[in-house]
Nucleic acid binder design. Structure first.
Length: 298
DNA sequence: AATCAGGCCTGCGGGC
DNA sequence: TGCCCGCAGGCCTGAT
């Protein structure tokens, strides 16, 4: 589910619930996810106050007092759910960070809720991840960037440092299709299958074009397209291909604005009617679906 | 060094 | 209605 805009939205939802509060208990329902939970996870988090949050690519970092950060990655199917303890209303933090249906606090735990943080202000925040491709780790706050999952990441696409020149340098010499290059987190960090498709569409670049040939003038179109689609999605609360609700009670709605993703055989929104384009095509690249308009994207 | 297929897991929707 | 198959938003590993 979660690419950069979704992780950003979830992180903001978590921040609204947790920042400034103390974790009084950590419940672990299994030994780990993609890899084992860090040694002493519960002991090292319990009793600590949550200082702040930040996001790096698709990773969330929850800074705790005493200098450690809880790193959370949602993988493909991860989401956060939050509910006040002992209250009739039971908000949930969906993939976008938040609140939905009501269940009694004695209701059985949600399926695949692998870790729960209980706070001193009476909230339970759970990490639900059916496919278990997610990850949890602890890292010294001063050494976050050196964590093995973060150290190799490329630039943040919304940072000023992510410029056409920087992207061109990263693409130069790459003999792989631009679609695959943009999914490479060392080139730019945080894009996934959906937003790569959408950004290439906006930039009018074929997903099959060699990455090397996108350095230069095409990067001048690609970088603003990437920034725009991410910023618009964050502004819409991310996209939800499943049901979920945010902390403010709104669902992420950006999926309604996808131009190409998941729209095989639908007309391309920007092609003029005559002669009609053949519509959005789906192809498979590196084992993943790519959606694009062959007429508009060259 | 760079690139790609395969694997990790479970759930869901479409077709029969 | 029910079963089976293909597919899914990420990322790491190993083979080439």
């Amino acid at each position: 589910m979660p690419e950069l805009p979704e992780v950003e939205t979830v992180m903001r939802g978590l921040s609204a619930v947790l920042q400034g509060h103390r974790i009084v208990e950590v419940e672990l329902r299994r030994a780990g996810l993609r890899f084992p939970f860090p040694l002493g996870l519960a002991r090292r988090v319990e009793g600590r106050r949550v200082i702040s949050f930040r996001r790096r690519a698709k990773y969330m970092l929850m800074r705790l007092e005493d200098g450690e950060s809880l790193l959370i990655h949602l993988g493909m199917s991860g989401r956060m759910v939050a509910r006040p303890v002992g209250d009739a209303a039971m908000p949930r933090l969906g993939p976008q960070g938040a609140v939905s249906d009501a269940r009694g606090h004695n209701a059985p735990p949600e399926a695949h809720e692998h870790m729960v943080l209980v706070t001193d202000h009476g909230w339970r925040v759970g990490f639900v991840d059916p496919r278990r491709f997610g990850a949890v780790d602890l890292v010294p706050t001063a050494e976050e960037e050196g964590h093995r999952l973060l150290s190799g990441l490329g630039p943040e696409p919304l940072d000023d440092a992510f410029t056409p020149a920087a992207l061109s340098a990263a693409l130069a010499g790459k003999r792989t299709p631009i679609k695959a290059a943009l999914l490479d987190q060392t080139v730019v960090a945080g894009l996934g299958n959906i937003y790569v498709c959408e950004a290439l569409y906006r930039a009018g670049i074929s997903p099959r074009r060699l990455a090397d040939s996108c350095a230069g003038v095409r990067a001048e179109r690609l970088v603003p397209a990437i920034k725009a689609v991410l910023a618009e999605s964050i502004g819409a609360g991310g996209s939800s291909l499943r049901d979920y609700v945010r902390a403010d009670g709104e669902v992420g709605r950006f999926q309604e604005r996808f131009a190409v993703y998941g729209r095989e055989d639908e007309p391309c929104p920007d092609c003029p009617g005559v002669p009609p384009c053949q519509g959005i095509q789906r192809i498979v690249q590196a084992g993943r679906s790519t959606f694009f308009c062959p007429k508009r994207q060259r």
